[in-house]
Computed example of a mutant assay.
Amino acid sequence: MPKAIRVHEYGGPEVMRYEDVETRAPGPGQIRVRQTAIGVNFIDIYFRSGVYKAPELPFVPGKEGAGEVVAVGEGVSLFRPGDRVAYGSASGTYAEEVVLDAKEAVSVPEGVADETAAAMMLKGLTAQYLLRRTYAVQPGDTILFHAAAGGVGLIATQWAKHLGATVIGTVGSADKAELARQHGCDHVILYRDEDFAARVKDITGGKGCAVVYDGVGKATYPASLDCLRPFGMFVSFGNASGVIDDFSIGLLGQKGSLYATRPTLFTHTADRASLEAMAEDLFGVVRSGAVKIPVHGRARLKDAQKVHTELAGRQTTGATVMTP
Rank of each mutant, 00 (worst) to 15 (best):
E194K: 07
K207C: 09
R48F: 03
K103S: 15
M322A: 08
V99S: 03
L252H: 05
E22P: 12
Y46G: 03
E96N: 04
P26Q: 13
R80G: 14
H8S: 15
T204D: 08
V200E: 01
P324I: 07
I143P: 00
T134E: 04
S224A: 14
S107D: 15
G151K: 07
D226E: 13
I168V: 05
S77G: 15
F145D: 01
D44E: 12
K207R: 15
P26K: 09
Y221N: 08
A86I: 12
A117M: 15
F59T: 06
M322R: 03
G153Q: 04
H268E: 11
Y191I: 01
G153H: 00
G27T: 13
D141H: 03
Y87H: 11
G88T: 03
G289I: 13
S274N: 14
P55N: 06
Y46H: 12
M1Q: 13
R24A: 12
V40T: 03
Q138T: 15
I5T: 08
R199D: 01
F79K: 08
S173P: 02
V321T: 12
E280Q: 13
Y191V: 01
V7Y: 00
V286N: 02
H308R: 12
A219F: 11
Q305S: 11
C185M: 14
A105F: 10
F145E: 00
G232M: 02
L190K: 01
D245E: 15
A180N: 08
G50V: 12
H268L: 09
A210C: 05
D44G: 12
A90C: 08
H308T: 05
E68V: 09
R48S: 06
F59H: 04
L301G: 02
L190V: 03
A54G: 07
G284P: 00
L190S: 00
V286S: 05
G297M: 10
T204I: 13
T142G: 02
Y18R: 04
E56C: 08
V188E: 02
S173E: 03
D271V: 14
A54V: 09
A223T: 09
G289T: 06
L130H: 00
V112R: 06
S257P: 14
M121W: 08
A304W: 00
V152C: 04
H296F: 15
D202F: 06
E56S: 15
Y46V: 11
A156E: 00
G92C: 10
H187L: 05
V40Q: 01
H162L: 07
W159F: 02
S224I: 04
D246E: 15
V106G: 02
A312Y: 12
I143Y: 01
A260W: 13
V98E: 04
Y221M: 12
C185Q: 09
V69Q: 05
T261G: 11
A219W: 05
V171F: 06
E68Y: 11
T264E: 01
A198D: 07
Q315M: 15
E310N: 11
Y10P: 03
